[in-house]
């Protein structure tokens, strides 16, 4: 049933929110601490558990999947609710922060690539697979 997926998602989100609030109170930050992240881990665990028991029905998947697919539109609606007028008045900080972040991350990708051992490129993998297929066809 589709509702089981929606209910599972709601239960995970509610438990995550509750634990996040609890963690916040425990840390003394008067805020929800990682509630969404905890809920995500609960949902992953629930999915693995259901799959192992063979109880992961199409209904459950479609109930959760629908809301997962709604995530970008909901983010668009969220963006449309923001106080952009106030943000625009604050000026170039956004541009500077974004550019510096992206440059730093690109540099880190390059650095990790240089530091680690050589690996097969996508072209080499495809060439090898094609060669194996051709050999298999000939044999």
């Amino acid at each position: 049933m589709t509702i089981s997926g929606v209910a599972l998602l709601a239960i995970c989100t509610l438990i995550g929110g509750f634990l996040g609030d609890l963690l916040g109170a425990w840390l003394g930050v008067k805020a929800n601490v990682g509630g969404v992240g905890i809920a995500m881990m609960l949902l992953i665990a629930a999915r693995l558990w259901l799959a192992r028991r063979g109880a992961l029905s199409v209904g459950v998947e479609s109930g959760v999947g629908f809301w997962g697919a709604m995530y970008i539109p909901i983010v668009v609606a969220m963006a449309a609710n923001q106080n952009v007028v106030a943000a625009v008045e604050s000026g170039p900080m956004v541009v500077v922060a974004a550019i510096l972040t992206v440059v730093a991350c690109f540099a880190a990708v390059a650095l990790i690539g240089r530091l680690s051992s050589a690996t097969e490129t996508m072209d080499e993998i495809e060439a090898r697979q094609n060669a194996a297929r051709a050999e298999g066809g000939a044999a």
């Binding site: 998602l9 989100t13 929110g17 509630g35 992953i44 998947e61 809301w67 997962g68």
Partner: peptide, 10 residues
């Protein structure tokens, strides 16, 4: 928002 974000973990 939270509901949809949690769903993507699936």
């Amino acid at each position: 928002r939270d509901f949809a974000i949690v769903a993507t973990a699936f």
